[in-house]
């Protein structure tokens, strides 16, 4: 097909593609108002840097405790894994799995796949298993819920504050930073950029 035509994924309108050079911002579907694609130069290196820092932050936020409690000199702390483990012991394996998947596993898979794809693409090579990973990335995307988790931690801190001294853990700051990195990443990441780079690479 000619490269000039594009189709809106939400309303199926056949549209003329806006030339890439035309400044920044997003192209919007004139019929339904859906965001179509990003305009402006491809920033593969920026995306790679962001996904790598997201990986590091993800690692850190699971090493350190998310919150701590001080009940009459008695110190308790928990990590995400600790919380999932406790749910598992409480006969709630599905909820434990949901917690682990949405806050750790899916963001991890997402960022690993992204880094794996971007690293060779930056060097002008086609990464192995690109198509498979790309489909995985698309599937995983809606299920990463780091920002919701942070709000959940804050709510539980307030709920516990009448019971004991609550101590926000190191990981909550890492999660906060991770949330910001992921937000920037998702605003910059356009699937067309990956495929364009893939077509240009060998």
């Amino acid at each position: 097909m000619s490269a000039r035509l594009t189709v809106c994924h939400e309303c199926d309108a056949l549209l003329q593609e806006v030339p890439q050079a035309e400044g920044g911002g997003n192209a919007i579907c004139p019929r339904c108002g859906a965001g179509l694609y990003r305009l402006g130069p491809d920033k593969l290196q920026v995306l790679l840097a962001l996904s790598l820092s997201a990986l590091i932050l993800l690692l850190l936020s699971n090493l350190f405790p998310v919150v701590g409690l001080n009940i009459q000199g008695h110190q308790v702390e928990t990590t995400v894994f600790g919380a999932a483990g406790q749910l598992w012991r409480d006969d709630m394996p599905v909820v434990a799995g949901l917690l682990l998947a949405t806050t750790v596993l899916i963001p991890l898979i997402e960022m690993l796949a992204l880094a794996w794809m971007l690293l060779p693409l930056c060097l002008g090579r086609r990464p192995p298993a690109f198509v498979l990973l790309f489909r995985g990335l698309r599937l995983a995307q809606p299920w990463a819920m780091v920002e919701v988790f942070i709000l959940g931690v804050l709510v539980s801190l307030v709920k516990l504050s009448h019971l004991a001294d609550v101590l926000p853990g190191t990981a909550i700051w890492c999660f906060g930073a991770l949330m910001l990195v992921l937000a920037v990443l998702s605003s910059l990441l356009d699937h067309r950029v990956l495929w364009r780079a893939w077509e240009a690479a060998r």
Partner: peptide, 8 residues
């Protein structure tokens, strides 16, 4: 998430 943190 709130329940998960409280439980832990």
């Amino acid at each position: 998430y709130v329940v998960a943190v409280l439980v832990a």
